[in-house]
């Protein structure tokens, strides 16, 4: 298939950046979206042009590195997948595809399509962990009784890969889905209960300081999340936060 690509090019953080048009030909519909980008980059290198910088790592939907806002949606038009899992068969011959980086003040562009997602890292460091003594006599986690329901809900929340599609899709650039997944995965387990109040307070404080917007429950994040993280997590985080603030 032959495609027209309109891609955001930006030399560095200070550069103003702009959309640049490219043509690619003979793209196989079996290719992944990132393979199509590789083909384009090979063409650019052959022409002595600077290839387009974009994030990727595992290319199998588990690391969360690949990003790309494709035709107005994070990870493109398909549901429940990352960009590396998006296939060219989703598009038609002759299509024009817009490719942009995640847009949020808290995710500044580093180069072309790569954004700095360290804000998520700092939120995690503010409380997204449990303190466990690993001196050698650590209690076996399996020895702690946990209800099946909570174990499952916690596992579902832990599926978040920190990709940032929730922020990218949200009209408010809110990071609530990500933060609520990270709060929930611990809040649901006995091991996480001890530090629950401090965790939610500190993570929300860091989230606000990073400059993410306020959640207005549009639900766009849940629709665009490649891992199906549910809005229930946001409600849970709101409860956890209220509990931690009032008590």
């Amino acid at each position: 298939m032959n495609l027209t690509l309109k891609i955001w090019r930006q030399k560095g953080p200070q550069d103003k950046g702009q959309m640049v048009e490219y043509k690619v030909t003979d793209i196989s519909e079996h290719m992944s979206f990132l393979e199509m980008m590789d083909v384009l980059n090979e063409q650019l290198v052959a022409k002595d042009e600077v290839p387009i910088a974009f994030d990727h790592d595992c290319r199998e939907g588990i690391c969360g590195m690949c990003s790309l806002h494709i035709n107005g949606e994070p990870h493109g038009p398909d549901r429940g997948i990352t960009t590396c899992q998006l296939h060219m068969r989703t598009f038609k011959d002759g299509d024009t595809i817009y490719i942009e980086p995640w847009r949020a003040k808290a995710f500044p562009v580093i180069k072309d399509l790569i954004v700095d997602r360290m804000a998520f890292e700092r939120i995690q460091q503010a409380g997204g962990y449990i303190s466990v003594n690993t001196s050698g006599n650590t209690q076996d986690a399996n020895a702690i009784p946990i209800s099946k329901l909570n174990a499952d809900l916690s596992m579902d929340a832990a599926a978040c890969i920190g990709c940032g599609a929730c922020v990218a899709s949200c009209k408010n650039s809110s990071a609530m889905l990500f933060v609520s997944a990270k709060v929930s995965q611990f809040a649901l387990l006995p091991q996480g209960k001890i530090e629950a109040a401090d965790r939610v307070r500190n993570m929300v404080k860091q989230m606000d300081e990073e400059g993410f917007g306020n959640c207005t429950n549009t639900g766009a994040c849940e629709v665009e999340c490649p891992k199906g993280i549910s809005l229930e997590n946001i409600a849970r985080m709101n409860r956890e936060y209220l509990k931690a603030s009032i008590i």
Binding site: K6, G72, K171, N172, F212, G219
Partner: peptide
């Protein structure tokens, strides 16, 4: 919170 806007933003797709 979104200082640079998307050129193409399909808000209706998800909300």
């Amino acid at each position: 919170s979104r200082n640079v806007k998307y050129v193409k933003y399909n808000g209706a797709a998800s909300a």
